[in-house]
Simulated assay, not measured.
Amino acid sequence: MQPANPYVNISAYKFVTFNDTLEKRSQFRALCEELSLKGTILLSPEGINLFLAGLREQIDTFLTWLRADQRFADLEVKESLSDRQPFTRMLVKLKREIITMKHPLIKPEEGRAPAVAATTLKRWLDQGHDDAGKPVVMVDTRNAFEVDVGTFDNTVDYRIEKFSEFPDVIAAHKDDFEGKTIVTFCTGGIRCEKAAIHMQNVGYDSVYQLEGGILKYFEAVGGAHYTGDCFVFDYRTALNPKLEATQTAQCFACRAVVTPREQLSPYYIPGKSCPHCQKEVRAELQEA
């Protein structure tokens, strides 16, 4: 009997020297097609970043093949399950960076910022301070529309539109965090890994990254100290703290996140428009 949620969705990344991306691209693509996997794999000289979905046996076969390469032998993977394939196609892309920050001197492979495990972070947030007695401040490194779907309570959110804006914004607010411990976080850990290194480079003396990001936090401790869901880049749009798909959607036309309440609007036509589109249209008409 087939399980109710037969599709395994995995996300993973690793910063590691990967200079043969061009040669490896065809191998990745051929294997994923053979295994009927779908999603996106980014290959870069600084490492790998992937989001894939398929049946359990095929996913396990892919990971066994990938980990046979010593560079990825210790690749850690975050999993969730779904009742259908969340991706429509399979892409293997070559990129300059696996997450664009436009700071080439930041090289996580050469040394990470300290990481805090989900269980430790929950304990810090429960008690209101870290183990040294310093207040803990959460800093969201994601884009504004992702934050709007859900984030940690009392988080610092600078409303950035793309990750490459983060370095200048956080450098300009250094004095705001005097005497505090900062924990940077993102969906799966990749953005906050670069963010924490940059913060150390510009003089922050007590900064951590959340190991494995929000998804690992959900997996380990659930939704404690977190309000809302976590945006993900596939048809599910958002996952709740149980790593289940929610009713949140994303507009095909303008790419805005559409909440269940907003989906009741007559302007929400799946695949065509949403209330956010209508606001933009009205604003343009008023300006005209």
Rank of each mutant, 00 (worst) to 15 (best):
G213P: 12
Y268T: 06
S36G: 04
T227V: 13
P241Q: 07
K134H: 12
D131P: 02
T184Q: 10
D176R: 12
M90Y: 07
A30Y: 03
R71L: 12
D60R: 14
T181L: 10
V257T: 10
I10M: 06
A30I: 00
E110T: 15
G203S: 10
D153R: 05
T40N: 05
P270L: 04
A73P: 02
I214L: 15
K134F: 13
C186R: 07
A288T: 14
S273K: 03
T88V: 12
Q278H: 15
A172P: 06
A253G: 05
A115Q: 15
N5S: 14
P266Y: 04
H173Q: 11
L63E: 01
E146I: 07
A238E: 04
P45D: 05
I190S: 06
A238Y: 05
W124H: 03
W124S: 10
T21A: 14
R71T: 10
A12P: 03
E110S: 11
E46G: 11
Y7S: 05
V183M: 12
S44P: 05
D69S: 04
A53Q: 05
Y226R: 08
R84Q: 10
F177R: 07
T88S: 13
T259Q: 01
Y158I: 04
D234S: 03
Q247F: 02
K93S: 14
P108D: 09
Y235N: 14
Q247M: 11
D131F: 11
E244S: 09
L91K: 15
P266V: 12
N240L: 03
G179M: 09
P114N: 14
K38P: 01
H173P: 10
P270A: 02
L285A: 08
R84C: 11
L121Y: 14
R123Y: 12
Q247N: 15
V77A: 06
Y158V: 01
M90S: 04
D229H: 15
R25A: 02
H198M: 14
F163R: 04
A288G: 13
L210R: 09
F62V: 05
I59M: 08
G54I: 05
C230F: 02
